[in-house]
Simulated scan of single mutants.
Amino acid sequence: MAQGKVWFIGAGPGDPELITVKAARLIASADLVVFAGSLVPRALFEGISATVIDSAPLSLPETHALLRDCAKAGGLAARVHTGESALFGAVREQAALLNADGIDWDVVPGVSSAFATAAAAKVSLTVPGGPQTFIITRLSGRTPVAEAEALPKLAAHGASLAVLLSAAEPERVQAELLEGGYAPDTLVVLGHKVGWPGGEVVRTSLADLAGAARSHGFTRQTVFLILPGQDLPPNASQSRLYDPGFSHGWREGQNPAEGSGPDSAGGSGPDSGPGEG
């Protein structure tokens, strides 16, 4: 009998429709689905014929045994994680056990709660003329964070920033971001259970971050988006890619002289053709 395979699947932030077509196909054709029951919507598994097991009460060895036995028997096992499994996920340790047993595995990416929150709030994480870097991080806690990645040090970059897995300590999040140099009036978006029924998005300022989180009862499953540069006027912060005078590999600008630098029509620069945004 040919050996089967394990697929690690990012299920997105909670909305059953925020999942890739590939992920939905694999789940529908799986023989076994092992999912993080406290965070992944059960609606994803309605109508499928696979054995579906909630991993919440299981240890790593117990979860591995289920995946291993399914694959060894020639089946397709879907290990379904919340959000994007490459972010604060547990793929590495599970994959190490599969590698040790000679079992093939692969990954399907998912939508991070950070991106779902930005979409729900209708904000851009990067702003022409403003931040061009987006950092995803967390507070240290039971999972330690290296001193070089402490929140004040990351805040000092002035980039857009998402703080995950830190909702229980909004006062500390606020204090460390202010310590790092963000202005008190910096826009902050709180995304609570975005994608789930009853999920909310709240806009506030950094000075009011903790108060807003506490007053709304956002103590779990909350994303903090820190968004400097959002007050730039649209006519002062437009993408060069669609400017009539900007040349790139697919279009000659109305004023070629303006497109003669490293982002010009030759296609050698980072803005040389249509991309994300």
Results as ranks from 00 to 15, higher is better:
Ala56Leu: 13
Val33Ile: 08
Leu58Phe: 07
Phe35Ser: 05
Ala43Tyr: 06
Glu46His: 07
Ala30His: 06
Pro41Ser: 12
Arg42Met: 02
Leu39Gln: 10
His64Cys: 15
Leu66Glu: 02
Val34Ala: 08
Ala71Ile: 10
Phe45Gln: 05
Asp31Glu: 02
Pro61Cys: 13
Ser59Ala: 11
Phe35Glu: 04
Ala56Asn: 12
Asp31Phe: 11
Ala65Met: 13
Leu66Val: 04
Leu58Glu: 05
Val34Thr: 07
Pro61Tyr: 07
His64Phe: 15
Val33Glu: 03
Ala71Cys: 08
Asp54Met: 06
Gly75Met: 14
Val34Leu: 15
Pro61Thr: 07
Thr51Met: 09
Phe35Thr: 03
Ile53Lys: 11
Val33Asp: 05
Gly75Gln: 11
Gly75Ala: 10
Cys70Ile: 10
Gly74Arg: 04
Ile53Leu: 10
Val40Thr: 02
Pro61Val: 01
Leu66Pro: 00
Ala71Met: 01
Asp54Leu: 04
Ala65Lys: 14
Arg42Ser: 04
Asp31Lys: 02
Glu46Asp: 09
Pro57Ala: 03
Gly37Lys: 04
Gly74Ser: 04
Val52Cys: 01
Asp69Met: 14
Val40Ile: 07
Phe45Ala: 03
Ala56Lys: 14
Leu39Val: 01
Val40His: 00
Val40Met: 06
Ser38Asn: 11
Asp69His: 10
Leu67Gln: 07
Gly47Ser: 08
Ala43Ser: 04
Pro61Gln: 03
Glu46Gln: 12
Ala73Pro: 10
Val40Tyr: 02
Leu32Cys: 09
Val40Glu: 00
Phe45Lys: 11
Ala36Asp: 13
Val33Leu: 00
